[in-house]
Design a protein around this nucleic acid. Structure first.
Length: 424
RNA sequence: GUGGCUGUAGCUCAGUCGGUUAGAGCGCCAGGUUGUGGCCCUGGAGGUCGGGGGUUCAAAACCCCUCAGCCACCCCA
């Protein structure tokens, strides 16, 4: 082999793509019902876009971006997430000047992060995501969570775990950050090296460290909930109220923290145990400061990103059956060179009438052609040899029932339509 | 980025203590049936034993490096 695919990437063959197309069609249908419209943006953006929105000191920006300089000296980055690009488009396409909210979705966007690969974690993966710009209404937070839930159940998933938390607004977050520093300050030396860095750069992340000694140091720490300002508490309460009314099961997880700086107030994750350590299939929340940080007027927003490879892994693990390559409607078996142009014409006639039709191009014996048609699989096999050509009558074999009928060659195309009308 | 496990045919896997020409099942191709699929039978193709280096009379096996996959961490979808 001359080439190998780069580490942490995946190919999709004709066996795989029907499954992707299926997920995409379900996603589109959900978005249609919820009133969202599709957007497309370039796979790379100015590096600064992600630095400003995702955050300078986040893991993603610090060490996971595919950043390069183009021939004009610009620093560009393959997008490591979708929301920032959606926000950029929102401003650049002047959607902020149109009627709000702007309800946008993106489908199968390639997302790039330089990470150590394992099952459910790739360097290029694909996300279905939804973003709603312009409304601060907690109803939209609930709508977004419901949408993700609806999509996942529509493709056949149950046993989902929805985690919910609030990260507060900049004011209450500031207060909590101070409280964290106060709590950890005296015991700073006992923290793991990662947490010592977090203490300096991003104290909120101290909360979900899994190192045992750091866990112990958490005792006596007031939960973030205590620091939420009245407005943020009210917001969270309303989101929960809507979820409750809609019958969405979730659990409050006070230690749930998202790794991107743009999140404010509502954050949530949907996970599934079939996935192992990388168990989060969907993550999202509210990002009221994002548009402003891009230079636009203050504009609230909420959204989610959903990993399609991880979803496919869960579905496979759970034994949910997904579409595979479609069968052939008719395979035309040819006997001898002299019938081939007639056979080709016939196959073309089928195709132009919307049938999936094929014929032998491997110079196979009749028997081998029959075996090939069987394995394809083909619903019908039409046999065309010198005798049929002379008599203008062809046998058409139903490969499921094994029955065969003689049909006039000129009626061969109509025959399939007739049979499907009858319901065979 | 850290620690660990695993790489043998297209796929799933055997391969004894380091010993001659590396095997099986499935899949693929052809034939048994010179014009009829599935079942059965026969035959065939297909291998840099992940790659490179080393130890040895001899390496798929032992050692080192490297690449890839997987597991956990970190982080995330």
């Amino acid at each position: 082999m001359i080439t190998k695919r780069p580490r942490g990437t995946a190919d999709a063959t004709p066996t795989d793509t029907p499954k992707w197309q299926y997920l995409e069609s379900v996603a589109r249908e959900i978005c249609r019902c919820y009133g969202y419209g599709e957007i497309r943006t370039p796979v790379f953006e100015h590096t600064e876009l992600f630095q400003r929105t995702v955050g300078e000191f986040t893991d993603v920006v610090e060490k996971e971006m595919y950043t390069f300089e183009d021939r004009g000296g610009r620093s560009l980055t393959l997008r490591p997430e979708g929301t920032a690009a959606a926000g950029r488009l929102f401003l650049e396409a002047h959607l902020d000047a149109a009627a709000l909210p702007a309800k946008l979705y993106y489908l199968s966007w390639p997302i790039f992060r330089y990470e150590r690969p394992q099952a459910g974690r790739l360097r290029q993966h694909h996300q279905f995501g939804v973003e709603c710009f312009g409304s601060a209404d907690p109803l939209v937070d609930a709508e977004i969570i419901t949408m993700a839930q609806d999509f996942l159940s529509a493709v056949g998933l149950a046993d989902l775990r929805v985690g919910l938390n609030s990260m507060g607004c900049p004011e209450c977050r500031h207060a909590y950050r101070a409280a964290l520093r106060e709590h950890y300050g005296p015991r700073r030396e006992k923290l793991c090296p990662d947490c010592q860095r977090r203490y300096e750069q991003n104290p909120l992340r101290l909360l979900d460290c899994k190192v045992e000694t750091c866990q112990e140091l958490k005792s006596g720490l007031p939960p973030m909930g205590d620091f939420l300002c009245p407005a943020c508490q009210e917001h969270l309460k309303k989101v929960e109220g809507y979820l409750h009314e809609l019958g969405i099961r979730y659990h409050r997880d006070p230690s749930l923290v998202r790794g991107f700086d743009y999140y404010t107030r509502t954050v949530f994750e949907i996970s599934h145990q079939a996935l192992g350590a990388q168990d989060v299939v969907c993550g999202g929340g509210r990002y009221d400061g994002l548009v402003e940080s891009l230079g636009g007027d203050p504009t609230p927003g909420v959204g989610f990103g959903l990993g399609l490879e991880r979803l496919l892994l869960i579905l496979e693990e759970e034994g949910v059956s997904l579409p595979s390559a479609p069968p052939l409607d008719v395979f035309v078996v040819t006997i001898g060179e002299e019938v081939r142009s007639t056979a080709f014409g016939l196959v073309q006639a089928y195709r132009r009438n919307g049938w999936r039709a094929d014929l032998d191009v491997m110079d196979r014996s009749m028997r081998a052609q029959m075996r090939f048609a069987d394995k394809y699989p083909a619903r019908y096999v039409l046999i065309l040899g010198p005798d049929e050509l002379a008599g203008q009558q062809v046998p058409i074999r139903n490969m499921v029932s094994g029955t065969e009928e003689k049909v006039a060659l000129k009626d061969a195309v109509g025959y399939l339509a007739e049979q499907s009308r009858v319901g065979t």
